[in-house]
C-alpha cells in the first residue's frame, strides 16, 4: 500500500454527518472511472447514516469559523456551502479552483490537517476545527516554495488553472513520499487532471522538488 496516495482521511468524521462525497456514494452515482481514480478509502454507509441522525444544522445561514493558513476567519454560511466556495467567495482565497465541483479533477485541492482534500467535496461547516492550508500560504515573503519553483522550472503549467490544485496535491504526496519513484508519482497524484497536458513537466517537477528537499 506504500505507493497509494494518502489523500483522504478515512477516520475524519463529518460533523454534519453527510459530506457531499458520501452523499454521492450513497446515491450510487460516484462510479469513478476505473483506471485513473486514486484509491480513496470510503466511510461506510452505515457509519454515515448513524452520524446523520445527530447534529442537523440549517437550512438557513449559520455562523462558521474556519482556521485558514493559521488565521480564524468568520462568515455566515448556509450549511450546504462547500469549503471551496467559502474560501473563494467569502474569503477571496481564489487559488483553489472550481472545475468539476464533484470530487474528480482536483483543481480545488487544499490541505485539511496536512492531508490533501478536494475542497469541493467538503462542507465548510465540516471543515471547522481543522487546520486548513491553501496554496496562498505556500510561498512566503514573495519567495516560492521549492515545489512551486520546480513547477516553474519544468514548465509544469500552461493555462495554470489546475496548477494550484496540483501543487497542493504534489505537496501532500511529497510529504508522505520524500523519495518518490516514477511509478509512485503516476499513482500518487492521479487524483488531479490537467487539460492543457502538463504531466511531463509535473513528473519532472516532482523529481526536482524531492531532490531539492534532500539537498536542503
Amino acid at each position: 500500500m506504500d505507493d497509494l496516495p494518502e489523500k483522504k482521511d478515512p477516520k475524519r468524521k463529518p460533523k454534519s454527518g453527510m459530506s457531499r462525497r458520501n452523499f454521492l456514494k450513497i446515491s450510487g452515482v460516484s462510479a469513478v472511472a476505473p483506471f485513473a481514480a486514486p484509491l480513496i478509502a470510503a466511510t461506510s454507509v452505515l457509519e454515515v447514516e448513524a452520524q446523520a441522525a445527530t447534529g442537523m444544522q440549517g437550512p438557513g445561514k449559520v455562523p462558521v469559523t474556519l482556521n485558514v493558513n493559521g488565521k480564524n476567519l468568520n462568515a455566515q454560511l448556509e450549511p450546504r456551502v462547500t469549503l471551496l466556495d467559502a474560501l473563494r467567495d467569502q474569503f477571496e482565497l481564489t487559488g483553489a479552483k472550481r472545475v468539476c465541483d464533484r470530487g474528480t479533477c482536483g483543481a480545488c485541492t487544499v490541505h485539511l490537517d496536512g492531508k490533501a482534500v478536494y475542497s469541493c467535496s467538503v462542507l465548510a461547516i465540516d471543515a471547522q476545527g481543522h487546520q486548513i492550508t491553501t496554496i496562498e500560504s505556500l510561498s512566503q515573503d514573495g519567495k516560492l516554495h521549492p515545489l512551486q519553483q520546480a513547477f516553474v522550472d519544468n514548465d509544469a503549467q500552461q493555462c495554470g488553472f489546475c496548477t494550484p490544485g496540483f501543487v497542493m496535491a504534489c505537496k501532500a504526496f511529497l510529504d508522505h513520499h520524500p523519495n518518490p519513484t516514477m511509478e509512485q508519482i503516476k499513482h500518487g497524484v492521479s487524483g488531479n487532471f490537467c487539460r492543457c497536458g502538463t504531466y511531463a513537466g509535473i513528473r519532472a517537477a516532482l523529481m526536482q522538488a524531492a531532490k531539492t528537499a534532500k539537498g536542503a
Partner: peptide
Amino acid sequence: NRVDGPLKAAGKAKYTYD
C-alpha cells in the same frame, strides 16, 4: 521559464472566475 509561471504556481494569477 515562462514569465507568468511564478504567479500561476503561487496561486495568485487572477482568472475571470476569480
